[in-house]
Design a protein around this nucleic acid. Structure first.
Lengths: 207, 207
DNA sequence: TAGATTGTTAATCGATTAACAATC
DNA sequence: TAGATTGTTAATCGATTAACAATC
């Protein structure tokens, strides 16, 4: 609730993981859990869990631990789950199609509002009930339909320009799947999924 | 060359990024670069770059900086680029298909050797020239075809069991796309791509 | 040689872990 | 009340940054 002290990126990146483990506990009908017990399951320290959670509020109770459902819901609030976000997918290639068909998003408050591409062979085809639109129509579309997040699954050389374009049209978050770093105005949030980087890290650890 | 002092995960995760920037510099016909200049491009400190690189060897020259091509090739070696890795894809859904069609992998020494699924409607269909095999045939296949990496793009509830199965059959690296943490014997390397975690982090920063 | 820039050691900063008083 | 476990402060550890002698 009181988010005074600025929370480090490391802590933020651990939140979805807490959320997953709590979801599992809920499914297993566990009603309460101590930081110690949770740390054993997650392979961290109880200290870290308590420190992390206390960045956002005191969700536990001395002598008792944490109520699983309550903590789960509190983290959900922090994560903005249940909030509605409208998104578009730019780039209807394999990855774009995979994201469009990823039902997890829909069930979590993400609402697909449009799919775009440049390829005339792809424009007009239907994906997940959406007619793929011409990328040239981005401006028209975004002026009529305010969008929160754009998922960019286009080739690298298109990414930077596209990012600028949609940012100018009020898109506040970019989920970038191309292997390149985006530089944008400070108020646009960029989250990268660098698949090839990830694969390289796997390989390094393999050698 | 001399990798005495153990390199931290943070450093390893930065290597693919150096590699990308050096690749760009090469394309722009830049022959030499100082840590200072590179730090400005990448938005880090020159100190960090020199520290990071010196975990693996002294690739620079006082008064000169770094030869771009040489450094690029040295990092390539560390990353295992140019080495050949055989991989299979387990789960021929949207994500599996996206990975199968991702040509970047092929051009970087990754050789697709098979695709598996459980769905009778998908088994037997052709993806990227590969007939999708029945997951039941994993054991037979892996005994005849030693594989380095398995990409797991199956539903969460299948992931853990599958991971065990292929690990037992000599697969040394797992690229896990399901939103779950895998616990395996120490010698199996796991690299996770938790898309929903990544999207949640985007949303947190958006709120 | 003088200037530039590395490799590397030392200083700082931040994040993780330990400890413990508060309290359920 | 006694036991358990939190919230939080203090100690430790590791990673980042700064500084500088070595050297091209």
């Amino acid at each position: 609730m009181d988010q005074q002290k600025k929370v480090s990126i490391a802590v933020v990146r651990r939140l979805p993981r807490y959320y997953r483990y709590l979801s599992d506990l809920l499914k297993m009908d566990v009603t309460r859990i101590s930081s110690k017990e949770l740390s054993l399951r997650m392979g961290t320290t109880a200290s870290q869990i308590r420190q992390d959670l206390n960045c956002f509020g005191g969700f536990g109770q001395q002598g008792y631990g944490y109520n699983v459902e309550y903590l789960y819901n509190e983290i959900a609030k922090i994560l903005g789950v249940s909030q509605q976000f409208k998104f578009i997918i730019i780039g209807a290639g394999n990855m774009g199609r995979a994201l469009a068909n990823y039902n997890n998003f829909v069930s979590r408050g993400f609402q697909l509002s449009g799919i775009f591409d440049v390829n005339p062979q792809i424009i007009g085809t239907t994906i997940k009930g959406f007619k793929v639109m011409d990328q040239d129509n981005l401006e028209t579309f975004l002026k009529e339909n305010p969008i929160d997040i754009a998922m960019l699954t286009v080739p690298s050389h298109q990414t930077a320009i596209l990012a600028e374009r949609v940012a100018k049209l009020g898109v506040k978050g970019l989920w970038n799947f191309s292997p390149m770093d985006l530089k944008l105005e400070a108020d646009v949030v960029v989250e990268n999924v660098h698949l090839s980087d990830s694969l390289m890290v796997l390989v390094i650890n393999l050698i």
